[in-house]
Every structure is written in structure tokens, then in C-alpha cells.
Amino acid sequence: MQAWQLLLQRLWRNSAFRFGVAVLGVLLLLAALAPVLGTVDPAAMDSANINTASGMRGEFTQLDGTVVKHTFWMGADNFGRDIFSRVLYGTRTSLLVAAFTATVAISVGALLGMLAGYFRMVDAVLMRFMDGLMAIPAILLAIALVAALGAQLWTVVVAIAIPEIPRVTRLVRSMVLTLREEPFVEAARALATPTPVILWRHILPNAMAPLIVQGTFVAASAVLTEAILSFLGLGLPADIPTWGNIMAEGRVQFTQYPGNVLFPALFLVPTVLAINLLGDGLRDVLDPKFSKRSP
């Protein structure tokens, strides 16, 4: 059996990992199949359906004027938009933001961490800058960045990723500091292997496990931060539905129509939980040193 097959087997035996994969799998399916799951255009407003109660069956007038039969599983909001459609399309946004943010934070953090860990001159300058970044609360920094860059998908991703980068950099730097003293790295130096190749071939693969684990935690916090930014009205523009801005718009009528806030929350909570559990499972298997439980 190949090494990766054994690894998958061990991962699958971990119940936290299984739960995380299952929940995320369902969410991915919902996001991918959103157009065929009985949804309408999430941005379409139908004045006939303002504040329709959840579970009602009725008719919905599309933007182009056509009328379709529709079941309002989660009701409609005070503009007559279908909440169910908005939440499903919002899942797309959340998962996209999570994946992009994790990728950006991990790649940039790994690169900077390797430079700081291997080159002493870079270390002194870079790590003081990172210390400075870490002194600013993550959410404040993200708000400031969105305000400066304007609200689009990529700016939100960058704004959420930047506060995460110092943490990833620190993690990678500390791993590189121990790995660079390993005899196999010294042997590579004695074999005249160029430094970038040493970093890429000998150091990065051995730092990968904790990096993947860290990536899942970055993804989980990205989902939350994106929702917070949107809730504050600083996230993605209002025409792109996200769980955060659905909740923000529902907040005004929370006492009469609590569903407008509770239904997106019902998606947000398990998503964050599932990604975190997935990360815990990965850590138990890939990186037992940092595991809270004994292996």
C-alpha cells in the first residue's frame, strides 16, 4: 500500500475528521447545486412576497417578469427576496472566501517564514514588522484594509488574509529554525545544493503537515471574519448575498421575523465547527506533537 493510502486510512478512522468532511461535503454540494435546488435569483425582489413566512408555497415573479411556482422554505425578507436562495448562494461566497484566504495566507506566510527562518538578516527586519501587524486586532485591520481597498471579493480575501499572515509566518519560521539544523539539510549544503532548492525540497515538505493544519484554522476564522465584515456592512457589496449581509439586513426585523437571522446562522455555525473539527482531525494524524489528546 502507498504511504498516502495509509494516511487516508488513518485520517478516516478519526471521528472529528469524518464529521468535518461530511458537513463540508454537504455544504459543497449545496453550493455547487444551488441553481437546481428549487432556488430563484437571490437578488430578485418580488413586492408580492414581502416577509412571506417560512414553509409557504406560492408564486414568485422573476426579474424578467416570468412567474414561477416556488416554495419559500425559509420565507422572504422585507424586500421580497427568497431567503433560502440567498443562503444557498451565500454558501458559495463563504466557501470561496475561506478557500482563497487560506491559500493566500498559507502561501505568503510560508514564503516569508522560510525567508525569515533561513536568512538572519531578513529575520530581524521581517519579524519586527510581523510583530507590529500582530499588535493590531485582526478584525480592525481587516476593516481598515477593506475601507482602503474598496469592497470586492479579492479585496475582502486580502483583507482577511493579511492579519493571518504573521501567525503563519511565525509557525513556519520556528519550524525552519529547527529543520535547518537537521543533518539532512547540512548534507544537502555539503552536496552544493542551492539554497532555494534546499528550502523547496528539504525544508518545505517537512513543514507541510503543521502548515496544512494551520490552513484549516485560517479557513474557519476567514468564514467568521467575512460574516462579521458583511454584518457590519463592510464586506462584499450588497448585491452578492453572503450569510453576513443576510443577517445584517434581517437584524432590523429580528423580533417579528427571527428567521432572517437564524437561518443563515444555522449554516454559519456548523461550517465553522466542521472546518475546525477537520483541522483537529488533521492535526491528530499529521502532527501528533501538537495534539491535545495522546495518540
Binding site: 537537521e182 543533518p183 539532512f184 547540512e186 548534507a187 544537502a188 555539503a190 552536496l191 525540497r201 528539504h202 515538505p205 517537512n206
Partner: peptide, 13 residues
């Protein structure tokens, strides 16, 4: 000039 280290567990990636 080449080198062989002590610990065979750590001298190979």
C-alpha cells in the same frame, strides 16, 4: 569533500 553524519535517522530527508 563530503560528509557522513552520526544519526542515520536524521541524516536523510
Amino acid at each position: 569533500v563530503q560528509v557522513v553524519f552520526q544519526d542515520p535517522n536524521r541524516s536523510l530527508n
